[in-house]
């Protein structure tokens, strides 16, 4: 029984990481139909940003890097959107392959710039240590990531539901043509969405430096799971992403605990297939009468 609670913080911290990554994906995917495989490399870019800042800021790199990584990764995403992706609207499957090509190039670039071996970002001292919770030790670093995920969710929610730009974004997501007819500059909305979505990947990358080393392949470890969160949660659905990330994080940690790490992935996959039998479009669906 005790172990039942033991796994809870572990599962929640996996969930927080997944959520941070999936947040950006669900909007670029939901609004623009873009499956951005390079999202993982924006995570990597965020993590390396923290690594670079270390020379300037010492151990406080993580705190300073959060906004910087947001801008760096966001700018990379914006550039990608401007240079390539905007020619691909209406061809979602092609964007997947295109962005995979981009991710290959970025990974190799990271290998050439920073070297193939992993590097370490030193966590600030105020994040060392942890609290006792449900009989297991929960490091402050994990708590920090959870808090970060919650802050990001609130910020995104406020942006979408309380700002003019967010309203435009929702309009484009619901019906691109009609939004365009009503005077929304859809291209600008796309650019901004891509900037924010990619920027969130950068933030996630900084968070990941707290729980592991940074390497050129950092993004590839998380990208598949993050996409599963998007699929299970429903496209462009904030609520869906939150619930799906928590569910997947918990399922992952409990399945790993009861069986082993390799079977856990299979169980998670089977669970998602089973779930899609009841909700083929994910947890929440943007209702539309459009015929696909």
């Amino acid at each position: 029984m005790e172990s039942l609670f033991n796994q809870l913080p572990i599962g929640l911290s996996i969930a927080a990481v997944l959520l941070l990554i999936a947040l950006g994906l669900t909007f670029t995917f939901g609004q623009m139909g873009v499956i951005n495989m390079a999202h993982g490399e924006f995570i990597m870019a965020g993590a390396y940003t923290a690594y670079m800042l270390q020379d300037l800021t010492g151990t406080q790199a993580v705190a300073v890097a959060l906004p910087v990584a947001f801008v760096v990764a966001g700018a990379m995403g914006w550039l990608l959107e401007r240079l390539a992706i905007r020619h691909f609207y209406g061809r979602p499957l092609d964007t997947l392959l295109l962005t995979w090509g981009v991710s290959l190039v970025l990974q190799q670039a990271a290998r050439d710039i920073f070297g193939a071996p992993n590097v370490q970002v030193v966590a600030p001292s105020w994040l060392s240590g942890g609290v006792e919770m449900f009989g297991s030790n929960l490091p402050y670093a994990r708590l920090f990531i959870m808090a970060l995920a919650i802050i990001c969710v609130i910020a995104i929610w406020a942006y979408m539901n309380r700002s003019r730009q967010g309203r435009r974004m929702r309009a484009v997501m619901q019906n691109r043509e009609l939004a365009g007819c009503s005077g929304v500059d859809t291209e600008r909305v796309d650019q901004l969405t891509f900037f924010i979505g990619s920027g969130l990947a950068g933030v996630a990358g900084v968070a990941l430096t707290l729980i592991g080393p940074v390497g050129p392949n950092l993004g590839t470890y998380y990208i598949v799971d993050a996409f599963l969160v998007v699929v299970a949660g429903g496209l462009g659905q904030l609520r869906g992403a939150v619930i799906a990330a928590v569910a997947l994080g918990l399922l992952n940690s409990y399945a790993e605990f009861w069986t082993d790490a390799s079977l856990a992935k299979v169980i998670v996959f089977a669970a998602i297939i089973a779930f899609l039998q009841f909700r083929p479009q994910g947890l929440f669906v943007l209702r539309s009468r459009a015929l696909t």
């Binding site: 995917f29 139909g33 499956i35 979602p92 499957l93 997947l96 598949v224 799971d225 996409f227 599963l228 998007v230 699929v231 082993d260 790490a261 390799s262 079977l263 992935k265 299979v266 998670v268 996959f269 998602i272 297939i273 899609l276 039998q277 083929p280 479009q281 696909t292």
Partner: peptide
């Protein structure tokens, strides 16, 4: 269940990831 397009692509990719992890783990 009419799961298609990108959803199917992502699911097939997740299957590949899970399969490899299983093979390595066992």
């Amino acid at each position: 269940q009419r799961v298609r397009g990108a959803y199917f692509a992502i699911l097939s990719q997740a299957l590949a990831a899970a399969f490899v992890i299983l093979l390595v783990g066992q």
